[in-house]
Amino acid sequence: MSIDSIFVHKMWDDNELSKMVKGGVPFPMMSDTGGRVGKVYGVYDEDAGVETRGRFIIDPDGIIQGYEVLTPPVGRNVAETIRQVQAFQLVRKTRGGEATPSGWKPGKKTLKPGPELVGNVWKEWTTDLAFEK
């Protein structure tokens, strides 16, 4: 979603993005002329008249589980976004029975919060697990 019109979206997809992604952008490119939706989400920059690089993870109940907002010159990390979605999906599937510690990715160890784990995370998890290996 940006403040561009749907006509400009079409031109961008036709003339540039479709050269990078076969078949063009697979998801809807939304238009928010006037930034009215962006204002509600806190990503509309009044001075510049554009929206910043906001990214919201919304779960199947319509609840915001996470967001990240960057200033325009820095691009996002799509792999990290996907990792976060996978983590939220796991938590949802286990109904909160499992939590994903820092650095978790699919296949890595989760933690099961409960009375026994209080003060004992050091036995289950080490700081090197927080980093990519």
Binding site: F7, P28, G38, E51, R55, I57, P72, V85
Partner: peptide
Amino acid sequence: AYHKGKFIEVKLSDYLGKWVLLCFYPGD
């Protein structure tokens, strides 16, 4: 919205039941 050659209307609440990534960006 522009989606695969068509101009459509998107309503966020139509996506209830699915995971949604909503992305804003400065401009095309």
